[in-house]
Design a protein around this nucleic acid. Structure first.
Lengths: 343, 343
DNA sequence: TTGAAAGCGTTACCAG
DNA sequence: CTGGTAACGCTTTCAA
């Protein structure tokens, strides 16, 4: 025997399906008596409405698509956690999509999500290019980016101010008495986490009348541990004198700490390092990593709230710049401290 | 103007909707000529089939639900990556659900997924209790657990053999010449990652004629970094003599390494530690962590393949025990080595 | 307060 | 090879 439908309930309760539907969805249009009776039979039969049929007629599936460039990372996972939580509390299902930063894959997924009739889209840590935007416009569903923005500048985002956050990180180093500061960056061409962070680094230097030296900023492909290894080597070779290092991600930072350890360079005594992201990693590092903290989970939650708002109100949304802060731990030495002051 | 439907395409192409449908889904029932023509108008109009309507009539939504006790962890993220990849390649959408290991939340989600008419379920790192099983049976969709199993013993799983893996880990320590080996475990009452790993530890000790001493195995709530801190303190207080430590997770292991560092105990010189999981963390630790490697991504992928098989064949599935291995890095000292042999 | 029936976009059966 | 039509499970007019 198949799962009962609204029809079965109606027959069993001796009412019409219209009445059952009203009881389930509307506040009016039936007597208290029939309501009780119908609710009882529903309970008895173990009836559950079919969301697919509902979606067809309502033109609303109560589902959203979330596109990540990579789902297995710490950051994605934390953002997803925030998304899932508020979606869940609104009875909305979240469909995860891994684009691998690939154009074709992203397009395919967009098409897929269109066919699935999702009510909205969340676009994470990936530049929303013109053609993606074009396609999404045709889909006619609201979209918000997280830790990203659109080339077309007409889609709301939820992110921290990367330039300002980087500035603050380097500023922090300077305030601790450092004047010879290197940076391990991501690709300068990366408009999301590359370029702006470099800009922040430069500005902090400039405002403190410290010279910006091209080769004191190195990078290698991405923001991962392995990238850090090679970038750090490069940096150290040309500038062994640096006393502090700003890394554009926690993985990059930890990679530097690890390399330093193997080279016998003590952190923070000989080299201070500050990271970026404040993933779980930061706390677990030896020494615990001082880093720029981004509220990833909260970002996921806020963006999802906004998206759901947009879906319900059919109004466009506004962007939101999230606050960042320096999570002070033990990887930065205070050179201003009294000579006997450790750390 | 709304998105075109199959009806619009039919009208525009001067054929019936049946013909359009056939062209889209069947290999036969139309001439090459009309096929070309219809395909062209589809292209021209930018038509995309509505998966919701399809789902309604086919009683198949091409979507699966994935239940995690926690989505923000490294392990979940890696498993999810594997799931997403094979689902994607089969045109199936994955709906993520965070149960927070909570009974009510899990039940709510199960109900939700039932209404959404998902075609199958993946249950991750969480004991599938009798009542969950009951409910899922009523749903009538296939289910597979990953890194977990069912109380009722009638649902296929994909997991490593935890007892054997733990045994191997401790055995590895013993082979490196260690005889005084402590363990930081998860809760012994945890049937998934607690109990079996403890059993493996005990068996390895027993087979090597080493005594099992109750207090040489400590734990504190869970498998996270913070848990490790307190468990390690406890262990060290009663057994400062241990030369090696088996931790039931990488976070636990790294926590111990970190605590040891702060106490001036050098790893691996004074204390060897072996972890469990081989998450990204392991490589980033100082020193890089030797650990039991679980192929999480592969586990997610295999389970999803099996699930999709079950969905298509409507046949029950079989369990799969995945291979584990010791990922040798630098946190274990070889006490058998020549006296001048480092590490 | 209630029921009949149209319709959401699709597939599949049955005629022709 | 092609078209008409019932059906999937539900919501929503419109009448009664």
């Amino acid at each position: 025997m198949n799962r009962p439908t609204i029809k079965d309930v109606a027959r069993e309760a001796n009412v019409s399906i219209a009445t059952v539907s009203r009881i389930l969805n509307k506040g009016v249009g039936y007597s208290e008596k029939t309501k009780q009776h119908v609710l009882e039979t529903i309970e008895k039969m173990g009836y559950h409405p079919n969301a697919v049929a509902r979606g067809l007629i309502n033109k609303k599936t109560d589902s959203i698509g979330v596109l990540f460039p990579n789902v297995s990372g710490l950051i994605s996972a934390q953002i997803l956690q925030g998304i899932e939580e508020v979606a869940q509390s609104h009875g909305i299902s979240v469909i995860v999509c891994n684009t691998a930063s690939d154009h074709k894959k992203t397009m395919d997924y967009l098409t897929f999500l269109q066919e699935k009739q999702v009510d909205g889209l969340l676009f994470i840590s990936q530049l929303l290019t013109k053609d993606y935007r074009e396609f999404i416009k045709k889909m006619g569903v609201p979209i918000i980016t997280i830790s990203a923005f659109s080339e077309t500048n007409d889609v709301p985002y939820v992110k921290v101010d990367d330039e300002a956050a980087s500035y603050d990180a380097v500023r922090y180093l300077i305030e601790k008495g450092h004047t010879d500061i290197g940076m391990i960056s991501g690709p300068p061409t990366d408009p999301l986490a590359g370029h702006p962070r470099i800009q922040g680094y430069k500005r902090a230097l400039r405002e403190a009348d410290l010279p910006f030296i091209e080769t004191k900023m190195t990078w290698h492909k991405g923001f991962y541990f392995e990238d850090g290894q090679v970038a750090f080597q490069k940096l150290l070779k040309s500038h062994p004198s640096i006393t502090a290092l700003f890394a554009a991600s926690d993985e990059l930072a930890i990679s530097a700490v690890s390399s330093a350890y193997h080279l016998g360079i003590r952190v923070p005594h000989q080299l201070s390092v500050i990271g970026y992201d404040d993933t779980k990693l930061a706390k677990m590092s030896i020494p615990p990593l001082t880093t720029v903290s981004q509220p990833f989970e909260e970002m996921g939650a806020q963006a999802t709230k906004k998206l759901i708002d947009s879906i319900q109100s059919r109004e466009p949304n506004t962007s939101l710049t999230m606050p960042h802060r320096i999570a002070e731990r033990e990887s930065v030495k205070n050179r201003m401290a009294a000579p006997n002051g450790h750390v």
